[in-house]
């Protein structure tokens, strides 16, 4: 249990931004050998499907796998405690310093770079998401609903503006459409595949 706490304390301290699932896999599967790939990968699939940060979900999954519910709680707590303290400290530092010329200039650069980082995540997510034109439509629809749309004229009809909606609301609207589009469909059977039909 102490080892579990120690590992997630370490992950909490050394994880920045995103893309650390590969790093956790290396630590837990390759180095510590606490889980096999057959146990780890379904967990990764699960946390990618469910809401929440992947790292957090993995901590809960791995903790539960090794030590049950208490293991989950220990892994989650260990993961968050150091980031919580350092983030609070930085927050107080920011509010204490106030908006001086120094902090403004420093943060201008950091936020500009953070924009670039976020934009790169759009490209990475888009690359995985876009399998056809309908996926592009879903991306634009989601974006438009979250941002709200201005009113405009189309063929002499005034299209009313849509106010921006909250993220949960947008998901409730778009998700059924998206799942319906991506519903399991029988694959077009190629001649050589007919023979391998279900027994």
């Amino acid at each position: 249990m102490a080892e579990l706490a120690g590992l997630f304390l370490f992950i909490g301290l050394t994880s920045f931004g995103g893309g650390i699932t590969a790093y956790i896999r290396r630590l837990v599967v390759s180095q510590k050998r606490w889980l096999t790939d057959e146990e780890f990968l379904p967990g990764l699939g699960l946390v990618q499907l469910l809401p929440g940060a992947n790292v957090v979900g993995l901590a809960v999954y791995i903790g539960n796998h090794l030590k049950g519910p208490l293991g989950s709680a220990v892994a989650l707590g260990s993961l968050l405690v150091c980031p919580f303290i350092s983030t609070c400290a930085l927050g107080f530092l920011y509010f204490h310093a106030g908006k001086t010329a120094d902090t403004k200039a420093l943060l201008a650069g950091i936020t500009a770079a953070a924009c670039g980082l976020m934009a790169s995540m759009v490209f990475e997510a888009g690359e995985k998401a876009i399998k056809g034109a309908f996926d592009i439509f879903l991306i634009i629809l989601t974006f438009a609903l979250v941002r709200g749309t201005p009113s405009f004229e189309l063929l002499n009809h005034k299209i009313p503006s849509i106010p921006h909606l909250s993220v949960p609301m947008v998901i409730l609207i778009v998700a059924p459409l998206a799942v319906w589009w991506h519903r399991p469909r029988p694959k077009k059977e190629l001649p050589e595949q007919i023979g391998e039909a279900k027994p």
């Binding site: 991306i139 629809l141 989601t142 979250v146 799942v179």
Partner: peptide, 18 residues
């Protein structure tokens, strides 16, 4: 299906965040 459906939605939301 659910995985394929979530991906474009989260892309749109990250775009909105950006």
């Amino acid at each position: 299906s659910v995985m394929d459906a979530i991906l474009p939605i989260s892309t749109g939301l990250i775009l909105a965040a950006t």
